[in-house]
Design a protein around this nucleic acid. Structure first.
Lengths: 127, 127
DNA sequence: TAAAAAACAGTAATCATTCCTGTTTTCTGT
DNA sequence: ACAGAAAACAGGAATGATTACTGTTTTTTA
């Protein structure tokens, strides 16, 4: 069975994801770690991210310029994606309950909700 | 300048997108049209979808299994993506205003908001 | 401490999407 | 209607993110 053995690389990958608020891509995680772990393979990063998603330890929050962006903060919050710089920001709010109730009433099972605003972020607007 | 000449293929592509509630992928649109238009190229479908997005005539609503899914209904509504069958459903509600206000107050410019719930849809639950 | 299982590196394959080049269609002014 | 000029297109090659494969290394277990 997979995901049951200790692995120093898996641990390093998870720590890297959990210690940033940048909502990283697989490549970003790989770039961060390759100096510290010279023989790390990009495939290992992808494989472990897939495992973390199965385990519910990370979630996919958005696809930005063809790259999947993930988050180890699995608490109930929304995101804002800047279409200019690709930055992903956290948004904390719980004003979506009417939608959730409507879905539940209609027999849809919500396993995850993804709230993404697109636009231009504060930093980009100020150049 | 692009997008200024008439094109029968462009018209057919837009009509196909506008006449379905399936939130199609580029490939789906191509499959629908290739019998009617035998020499249609998949690249043409992609090129025209990109043009429609620039013109604001279609929006990207979600990425499902690596495929971008689009919608010609650009009215303010959210979507529900079934993780089992990949179907994308429309959700009509306007209960997201507190989030929008918070963003606007903080100098974020919203050009588009993307509200996606993930889970298992009614049809899949009932097998 | 020796199999057995899991994880890995490195590379090849896949697949959606974009790019390129030569051809066809559409437009515009006469 | 007709001849450039501009735009759109087909078909195929290129790109780039992600996944799969194979032989090797690490971890577990007993």
């Amino acid at each position: 069975m997979k995901g049951h053995n200790y692995s120093s690389k898996r641990e390093a990958i998870f720590k890297t994801i959990a210690s940033t608020k940048s909502h990283p891509s697989a490549k970003w995680v790989y770039e961060q770690l390759k100096d510290e772990i010279p023989n790390l393979s990009l495939g290992t990063v992808y494989r472990n991210i897939a495992l973390f998603k199965e385990q519910g330890k990370v979630i996919s929050v958005a696809s930005v310029n063809g790259e999947e962006r993930i988050d180890a903060d699995i608490s109930d919050h929304a995101h804002f994606v800047c279409e200019n710089c690709g930055c992903v920001y956290d948004l904390f709010s719980s004003e979506l309950s009417p939608l959730e109730k409507e879905l539940t009433r209609n027999s849809f099972e919500i396993t995850r909700k993804n709230v993404v605003f697109h636009g231009i972020c504060k930093n980009c607007k100020l150049n």
